[in-house]
Design a protein around this nucleic acid. Structure first.
Lengths: 184, 184
DNA sequence: TGGCTCATGTAATCTGTTACATGATTCT
DNA sequence: AGAATCATGTAACAGATTACATGAGCCA
């Protein structure tokens, strides 16, 4: 009860920025939001229909570039529901890293394989960093869109945290490699 | 299919360190592992029974301090299954922060409430930090338990990352407060 | 004696993903 | 021509939480 699903608010939030199709919403989730949220078509499309039934968004069927699309626009009611949620203090911040799980149990499998996991983790992070850095520098410019400031701050979170991840990876390598030498 | 449930391995991993009851497993999850994993009794107890049925753990019903307990011990088969999973490269690292979601849509609600969310986020982090720091310093000492090294490294992750969170919080406050002044 | 912690478990429910289904358009 | 992308959707399934249920021991 205290923990209602967030997908409704994610969609309302994205639609508060601009009118979008379900497909475009998925793209936003896979780019700007992928750092801290994700969702599949299997939850996006049914939720959009629910929101429409509840009068929180209105749909507009149209043809664009020879393609049938359904574009959704937030209503005043939808904006009110979104605001009410944004005001709520209860939040759940959850980190679920299988990499840390495997490290935690690393003594069972040894340093070599554990180091490989850490290495792969670092590579994934390094691959993500440029995208985040670009986002920050693009959104940092003072522009007309007030919302860019907020989006930039989430990307900044990514940059700072991911850089810390990389530092940590180095430390882990040092500790585990040093541990390996002791056995020689 | 590529994404099988992890709870089995979490329990096997914890039992690879020491024999435990379901209740004790929950306590481990709520302390040492809460940074990067969690689970409820509703998944722990049924999973323990499954693992026993599959011969990966063996149960021992006993009375301790006048209380009925069921203590589980990992079997050789269980250890093999755990190792096979630890060797696998596929990992899913997922961060799901409602705080970042609310920040992302912050333009809809404004700076004041958004700053409150950030403030509350920082407070939660500050509350967690001492526990993580204590863990690192306690586990850093070279001791007999090889596994402590690995556990320490996960706590070190927490310390470094949480300190970065706090730095980021300060930056967010600066940016949003500066933005507020512009309107005056 | 009353509340908290210890201790184990189940059933209903929720939330979401995966896999499937379909078909048009655009790019190479 | 074929592959990739655009575009929307459903049904089955998985994984897990929440609430409920029960009861003993410990502490104030």
């Amino acid at each position: 009860m205290a923990n209602e699903k967030k997908i409704n608010y994610v969609l309302l939030g994205l639609l508060s920025h601009e009118s979008l199709t379900g497909y475009e919403i998925k793209k936003r989730l896979d780019t700007r939001l992928r750092l801290f949220w994700n969702a599949s078509y299997g939850s996006i499309y049914p939720t959009l229909n629910e929101l429409e039934k509840d009068g929180l968004v209105k749909k507009e069927e149209l043809e664009e570039k020879g393609r049938d699309k359904i574009r959704y626009t937030i209503t005043e009611d939808g904006r009110e529901v979104l605001k009410a949620w944004l005001e709520k203090t209860a939040v759940k911040d959850e980190l679920r890293y299988e990499t840390l799980l495997k490290l935690f149990f690393g003594s069972e499998i040894g340093e070599d394989i554990t180091l490989e996991h850490i290495h792969r983790f670092g590579e994934k992070i390094e691959k993500e960093l440029p995208f985040l850095k670009t986002s920050v520098s693009q959104l940092k410019e003072p522009d007309l869109e007030e919302e860019h400031k907020y989006i930039m701050l989430t990307a900044l979170f990514g940059v700072k945290v991911y850089e810390t991840y990389l530092e940590w990876c180095k430390e882990v390598e040092e500790v585990l490699k040093a541990g390996g030498k002791k056995d020689v």
